[in-house]
Amino acid sequence: MTSEIIVKAVDVSKRFGNFLALDKVNVEVKRGEVSCIIGPSGSGKSTFLRCINLLERMDGGAIWVSDELVGYRRDGNKLHEISDSEIARQRRRIGMVFQRFNLFPHMTALQNIMEGPVQVMGETTKAAREHAEMLLDRVGLGDKKNHYPSELSGGQQQRVAIARAMGMRPELILFDEPTSALDPELVSEVLDVMHDLASSGMTMIVVTHEMGFARNVANTVTFMEAGKVVETGLASKVLSTPKNARTAAFIQAVQS
């Protein structure tokens, strides 16, 4: 892992009406790092992820991914919102795995993974199929390539969703509580795939309540509450000897 910063968020703010969802959030993630974001429901974790890949527009602050300003272009001292086509180009570099899988129900596992590379990146069907089959093998679902989402368990669907994100060859993958919709016995199969991804050097930002994963895999942990970053640092320190009393109380409550 290098010391290169791939994601830099500075004073990111977001409002929904009168509700301040993000209040001057500052986060840095280095290339090859796994950064876990923890905190109670409604603390702004998912909204922050959605700002990184432009599913939500920030109201203040800035985010850079690989030194490129996300969502805006700078003209002197002014910022201008970029076009939809420029947004699509920026989004190609950032994979996202959602809570609810979001697979296309009318497509097989293989077709779900091939769709982006063919339609967005212009890959040939042959190349996209070969890459998709390799990814399905990697997530342990090579024998399920012709199955539709309705024929797969929740854990299998989420593994297909991870493979789909990888199919676009992203620099960064965002995970928004990827195990929260799964039955407890299916959680480990998804976390194992994520552990494998982390071991391969993929840069990952993971919103999660899985403290075991954060403890064993994350390089850094950020605790958020009420739209603010309360504490951030090395995972080993934040999770074992947090400086903030609120961080400590949350970790104790989740692990008990």
Rank of each mutant, 00 (worst) to 15 (best):
T247I: 02
I205N: 04
G142L: 10
E231C: 03
L197Q: 04
G233V: 08
D23R: 09
D192K: 14
I63A: 07
V230T: 08
R164P: 12
E189T: 10
G44I: 09
G71W: 05
F223S: 09
S153Q: 05
I205A: 02
D183C: 03
L197V: 03
V120K: 08
V29M: 07
Q157N: 08
V10N: 13
L135Q: 08
S153H: 04
N53R: 10
V65L: 10
A88W: 01
W64Q: 06
K24S: 12
G155P: 04
N18W: 00
G122A: 10
E81H: 14
E33K: 07
E210D: 10
V29P: 07
F104L: 11
T108N: 05
Q158R: 00
A109D: 09
F175A: 02
R31G: 04
G212E: 06
N244I: 07
G154F: 00
A163R: 02
A248R: 14
V7I: 13
R169F: 00
R93H: 13
T222W: 03
E130R: 14
Q111G: 08
R215D: 11
S83F: 06
L103C: 09
A181H: 04
K24W: 02
R31M: 10
Y148A: 06
L49Y: 06
H195E: 15
V70M: 15
S199A: 15
D183T: 02
A127I: 08
M1A: 12
L191N: 04
T241K: 13
R57N: 13
I37F: 00
E133F: 11
A253D: 12
E68P: 08
V118C: 07
M194W: 02
T220M: 10
A218L: 06
I5F: 06
S85T: 14
G42A: 03
T220Y: 11
G122D: 10
R138Y: 15
V206L: 00
N77D: 15
R129I: 05
V10I: 14
D137I: 02
G233P: 11
L234A: 12
G140K: 00
N18T: 14
N219D: 15
L135P: 11
E115A: 11
E177G: 03
N216H: 11
E28T: 14
V229N: 05
G32W: 05
E28L: 10
V221C: 09
T108K: 01
D137Q: 11
D59G: 15
M211H: 03
S13L: 09
V193I: 09
T232R: 12
S41G: 05
V27T: 03
K45Q: 06
P242Q: 01
M96Q: 03
V65A: 06
A181N: 03
I63L: 10
D192E: 15
T47R: 05
H209Y: 02
G44S: 11
V120F: 04
G32V: 03
A62F: 13
R93F: 12
I94R: 06
V34N: 08
Q158T: 01
S240T: 14
G39Y: 04
C51E: 08
E189N: 04
E81V: 13
